[in-house]
Design a protein around this nucleic acid. Structure first.
Length: 459
RNA sequence: GUGAGUGUAGCUCAGUUGGCAGAGCACCAGGUUGUGGCCCUGGUGGCCGUGGGUUCAAGUCCCAUCACUCACCCCA
């Protein structure tokens, strides 16, 4: 080794980026496998888009473009157009659909697994690189597509073994209708939505202050303030304090905003969604109409969804999405309505870990062929190769010393179930001493019977 | 970008009013030359995040800086 004099680098990783060691990776993989099965059962088709896009393709609203990671060459001057890493899978999907729309039968349903990047400060359950698992339906305005996405969300959470979750549902059209009714201009609407979204976190009294324009005593300079009339605030309050039952809520909302067309439309869509979900027997309390749900991404136009773990609400949404009917218009003159959802795999993984809902995934091998002594190394290779050809997970020891101690220790620490010990004695008899690493029991059997032995102990 | 907290062995962390750099776990060797875990004995491993200052003396006090973590914003 010629590295003895070099200065040691710290083995550090930038915040928000992570390594996955085998055990955790296996858990994450299990989540993906589980979700893939659900998505496929709905008929969603797999698809992948590029991780790198032109910056202008991704840059939409103010807030998101600040978080976009830029990609540079070694000589930035040479790259004429600026490139960036995608911050979600949805914008790329819209771009791709616009470019290839005649290749797809509409409505088109696709799923996609992919890493995305956002330049944010790391927090619990929040990373700078994380895995999203999306399902989207492109090419239909019908609320049945939104209902299907909600059903997919519910089914996925169930399949992942999550008991305590709520899917919040709202409709941007209802909120827009409300804003119109209250006489807000378009600039104020986004502020209104952001304030409303804080309801669960800071409570109605604080929200009221923000709507009124009072000082809140909240630490930061909270820039979101409106100056609504007392009457308007009363209307908002009525909409916030609705009965628990979804259909009663809808009725009340309808009464309050029936004179605004877009609001009526929004209520109608939610009615259709609930009617369809009702047919499936999804419990009513799982999918809850929540008018305070706004969601930030500026491309949502209709129904929006967010899944919360009720035992861990502070983690934020783990599977969220909504309808974005205008997004494809950024790339094409023809509009292409769409709706979809994104499973935050890494965030949900953190949540399930904290709640202790993940079982240890086993990736350990069945056999370690223990050849005793250097002269038995080749024998071990030979025996292992035969077993692997029969689909038995088999390892040989690859360390320096072929001693009993080293090899049993390796088997133990790696969780290997059986040590198949072959010393010169055994080899002469064409047998192996098979040791159960869990209870220490050991029996001697012919090498030719190893497969039979494996089949017997497999379950 | 804003606020708070934390940086000491590979990991988790102790370290008192400033006075020899510590523990547990992990790793290596031995107790056991054909038997892992448990136990016992010994060992490797550190510029105390970095730079400056105060002091006879700094892991400890002061200043700066960087990094990480949590929270805000926003979001999966």
């Amino acid at each position: 080794m010629s590295y003895s004099n070099h200065k040691l680098l710290k083995s550090r990783l930038p915040g928000g980026f992570r390594d996955f060691l085998p055990d955790e990776f296996a858990q994450r993989q299990w989540m993906l496998d589980t979700a893939v099965k659900v998505y496929q059962s709905f008929g969603f088709k797999p698809l992948q888009t590029s991780s790198v896009e032109y910056f202008e393709t991704l840059a939409g609203g103010d807030e998101t473009s600040k978080q976009i990671y830029r990609v540079f060459n070694q000589e930035p001057d040479l790259s004429v157009e600026s490139l960036a890493l995608r911050f979600d899978l949805t914008v790329s999907l819209a771009r791709m659909m616009a470019a290839n729309r005649n290749l797809f039968t509409l409505p088109f349903k696709r799923y996609q697994i992919g890493e995305v990047w956002r330049g944010e400060r790391q927090q619990r359950g929040r990373f700078r690189q994380f895995l999203q698992f999306d399902a989207d339906i492109v090419g239909t305005e019908h609320p049945s597509a939104d209902a299907e996405i909600l059903l997919l969300m519910y089914t996925t959470m169930q399949a992942l073994g999550v008991e305590n979750f709520i899917i919040k549902l709202n409709n941007r059209k209802i909120l827009n209708g409300l804003a119109l009714k209250l006489g807000m201009n378009p600039d104020e609407i986004n502020t209104f939505l952001r304030i409303l979204d804080k309801l669960e976190k800071i409570g109605w009294e604080e929200v009221k202050k923000l709507l009124k324009g009072d000082d809140t005593g909240l630490t930061d300079e909270v820039q979101d303030k409106l100056s609504l009339s007392a009457e308007s605030i009363n209307t908002v309050e009525e909409l916030i304090n609705l009965p628990p039952d979804n259909s009663e809520r809808l009725d009340e909302i309808f009464h309050l905003i029936q004179d605004v067309e877009i609001g009526r439309e929004g209520v109608g869509e939610i009615e259709i969604i609930f009617a369809l979900l009702d047919e499936t027997g999804v419990p009513e309390d799982r999918i809850s109409l929540d008018l305070s749900l706004a969601r930030g991404l500026d491309y949502y136009t209709g129904p929006v969804f967010e899944t919360i773990l009720t035992d861990l609400p502070s983690l934020g949404g783990v599977m969220s999405g909504g309808r974005y009917d205008d997004l494809v218009e950024r790339f094409s003159k023809e509009s292409l309505p769409a709706t979809g959802v994104s499973l935050g795999v890494d965030r949900l993984l953190v949540g399930l870990q904290e709640l202790g809902l993940l079982k240890a995934e086993q990736s350990a091998s069945d056999f370690l062929i223990v050849g005793l002594g250097e002269e038995m190394r080749g024998i071990a290779f030979k025996v292992a190769h035969e077993l692997r050809r029969r689909n038995i997970k088999t390892e040989v020891f690859l360390g320096d010393k072929m001693g009993m101690k080293q090899q049993l220790k390796y088997a133990d620490k790696s969780g290997i179930k059986y040590a198949v010990i072959i010393g010169s004695d055994e080899w002469a008899k064409q047998t192996a001493s098979v040791k159960n690493m869990k209870n220490g029991e050991q029996i001697e059997i012919p090498i030719s019977k190893l497969e039979e032995f494996y089949l017997k102990i497999r379950d």
